[in-house]
Each structure stands twice: as structure tokens, then as C-alpha cells.
Design a protein around this nucleic acid. Structure first.
Length: 155
DNA sequence: CGGTTTTGACCTGCGC
DNA sequence: GCGCAGGTCAAAACCG
């Protein structure tokens, strides 16, 4: 389902995300275009509204491949993990899903805490991790893990 | 009153 | 084997 609402699409934010993920040594490449839920998924559909109250990200998954010889099973486990770096003054970006916070942690290399969220829909094991950029506090790093097994929050 | 947040404790993987 | 760091649990507080 396309959440292609009238949400403002800040293309610059997507590029920033892209740069960030590419320079992360843990990931060698990120390929997009899967269709567990959205057959028409393309990176360009990522919508981020940094100026409004609610931010909508039209993505549910991504595939991150590591070229550091990992077997297929390991690759499958890391799959469905997407990280976003978003310029936002609001910490909790409302992507439309219902999240329940289940943990907070201080990370060593950052003065900022890291928050752990889980999708509150039953049977949905999607997890989310929100953390402020240690260098630029006006950025928020959001990491999604898993695929929603339901059609979205509002239905 | 039910679901969510909070917060420290607990667990586990990893490196030394 | 121990300690650190990251991730999770859970109980009580909190809030609509």
C-alpha cells in the first residue's frame, strides 16, 4: 500500500540517508525494490516530512547485503533492516504505525540515549530503534528491523 | 481501566 | 572466566 499521501517529499533527506548507509562499514550496499507488501517499492517512494507534525516513511523493508563472506542464512537474517538518518527536531517520527517503547540505553560513543520500540500490533515483530546523531543532534537515526505482517496501522 | 512509558535489572555475545 | 556493551524484560508509575 502506498502511503503516497500529500506528504512533503524531501529528496535531500533520502540522499543523506543514502550517504550515511553507504559509509557505514557494516553495510556494503543497500538494494531496494522488494515487494513483501508493496510491489511498487522504489527508493524514491520514501517520503519524509520533516516540517510537519507527522513524518511518513513509505517503506517497510530493505535489503542490506554484506560482502564480507556471510552465508545465505546470515544474509537472510540481516535482510529486512533499514536505517534512516532524518533531519528532524522531533525525535519520534510518526510513520503511522503504533509503537511501544520497551527500552532505553545509553551508547558508549554517544551522549545520546537510544530508544527501542516494538510494533504494538500482535504478531508483528517489527522493531525500531531511534537514536539521535551524536555529531549532529538535529538528526535522528531510525533503524527498522522486520516486516509488518499487517497492512498498516490505519485500516 | 487499559495500554504505554519508565527505569533498573537481567541476559547474552564477544573480546581480552 | 570476566567485564563491557548492546539488547530486552518487567513492574510500577503514568496518562488518556
Amino acid at each position: 500500500m502506498n502511503i503516497q499521501n500529500d506528504t512533503n517529499f524531501e529528496i535531500s533527506d533520502f540522499f543523506e540517508f543514502n550517504d550515511w548507509i553507504e559509509e557505514d562499514p557494516a553495510f556494503s550496499s543497500i538494494s531496494a525494490g522488494y515487494n513483501h507488501q508493496n510491489p511498487n517499492y522504489t527508493p524514491n517512494e520514501i517520503t519524509v516530512n520533516t516540517s510537519g507534525i507527522s513524518n511518513s516513511s513509505n517503506f517497510h523493508e530493505g535489503t542490506i547485503n554484506r560482502d564480507s563472506g556471510m552465508n545465505s542464512r546470515e544474509r537472510k537474517e540481516i535482510r529486512e533492516k533499514v536505517a534512516f538518518k532524518t533531519k528532524s527536531e522531533i525525535e519520534v517520527l510518526d510513520d503511522g504505525f503504533k509503537w511501544r517503547k520497551y527500552g532505553k540505553k545509553m551508547v558508549k560513543n554517544s551522549p545520546n540515549p537510544r530508544n527501542y520500540y516494538r510494533c504494538s500490533v500482535e504478531g508483528c515483530a517489527v522493531k525500531k530503534r531511534v537514536e539521535r546523531d551524536k555529531e549532529d543532534p538535529r538528526y535522528v537515526v531510525t533503524t527498522y528491523e522486520g516486516i509488518h505482517n499487517h497492512q498498516g496501522p490505519h485500516l
